[in-house]
């Protein structure tokens, strides 16, 4: 009763603007503060080379986190992205090193192989968890093992190497000091942002995250939307695999262990609610940058590895507390 009284008079509007401040400006401010801190306390942080480094280093996590945003927005989680990335990389590595193809064909084949592998894993995650209404946490935990095992099986646990030169060059190419692979990631962010904000599909994903039943009763095929969200997540894992291969010029079946947690961290720090329905991919971009800046800056100021890990953990906890207050402001 109280909430309704409050609501009728614009209290809610204020709460909403406060929420959006917390949502976006808050993360942006935190990022600015970090950048300022590292600029003052380290000599190399704010140099062109270092910024290039950071952008390169966050690329894979950002790509995975974009897909993860879709899944978390519908109230799911995908723990398998790290393993799926490794699996996709191994399949693509096998494809790209097949004899009898020119470099262009081999690269095209690898891109198709990686994305298709990711998509298939995503479809599996989506169909199983949506059809039987099972918690995606469990299903994707299964996929984490399936994909990792498959990666080891396909590669015989060997690192695959010797890729076409053009492919390796793509991984280290720059445009005005901006890594091309980061531009790829940024394009994915923009496409995701557009899809989530301007399309019926995006609107309904938010709707599903908030109240799946209401969307179902409005006649929408919720099942397929959920499958699509997981498929997108698998697709981005495939793209991440291509970037991984291009950057490091190898396909390792043990690549990407723990990457899922970094991707989830980027999404959560970016202000997307783990319970779904609320958040944005722009926040995810900022979240990934914060993680990258922390990892880079803390090395530059000479902090030990263990302290680095602790601080990253503290940031995640802090982000979740912030999320709690965001949720409270929306509820009021």
């Amino acid at each position: 009763m109280t909430t309704q009284t409050l609501a009728e008079t614009g209290q809610v509007k204020r709460a909403i603007s406060l929420r959006s401040v917390l949502n976006n400006a808050g993360i942006g401010l935190a990022l600015l503060a970090l950048i300022l801190f590292f600029s003052v306390f380290t000599e190399h942080f704010l140099t062109a080379n270092n910024i290039t480094n950071i952008l390169t280093q966050i690329t894979i996590n950002l790509i995975l986190a974009v897909g993860m945003t879709f899944v978390i927005l519908i109230g799911g989680i995908d723990l398998s992205v790290g393993s799926v990335m490794a699996f996709a990389a191994v399949v693509a590595g096998k494809a790209i090193t097949l004899p009898g193809f020119g470099p262009a064909e081999a690269i095209a084949l690898a891109v198709v192989a990686a994305t298709m592998t990711g998509v298939l894993c995503g479809v599996f995650n989506g169909v199983i968890s949506a059809y039987w209404a099972l918690p995606s946490f469990i299903i994707t935990l299964g996929m984490l093992n399936i994909a990792r095992g498959a990666a080891l099986q396909v590669s015989d646990a060997q690192t695959i190497y010797a890729f076409p030169i053009a492919f390796e060059e793509f991984g280290s190419a720059m445009i005005y000091g901006v890594p091309v692979v980061f531009i790829v990631a940024l394009l994915l962010v923009l496409v995701a942002w557009f899809v989530l904000n301007y399309t019926v599909f995006g609107r309904l994903l938010y709707g599903i995250g908030n109240n799946e039943e209401a969307v179902r009763l409005a006649g929408h095929p919720v099942f397929w939307y959920k499958v699509a969200a997981f498929t997108i997540c698998g697709f981005t894992a495939g793209i991440a695999a291509i970037v991984y291969m291009a950057r490091l010029n190898i396909s390792s079946p043990i690549a990407g262990i723990g990457f899922e947690l970094n991707a989830i961290a980027a999404v959560i720090i970016g202000g997307t609610s783990l319970s779904g329905g609320r958040g944005s991919v722009i926040g995810t971009l900022l979240g990934a940058i914060i993680i990258g800046v922390l990892a880079n800056g803390l090395i530059l100021i000479g902090l030990s590895d263990f302290m680095r890990q602790m601080i990253t953990g503290i940031v995640i906890v802090f982000a979740v507390i912030l999320d709690h207050y965001r949720a409270k402001y929306t509820a009021k």
């Binding site: 609107r203 709707g207 908030n210 109240n211 209401a214 969307v215 009763l217 409005a218 609320r278 929306t330």
Partner: peptide, 18 residues
């Protein structure tokens, strides 16, 4: 609340849901 509305979403989005 459970089936009719997506409470956190705008009035406009709810009225166009179907």
């Amino acid at each position: 609340k459970g089936e009719g509305l997506v409470l956190d979403m705008p009035i406009a989005a709810n009225s166009s849901m179907a």
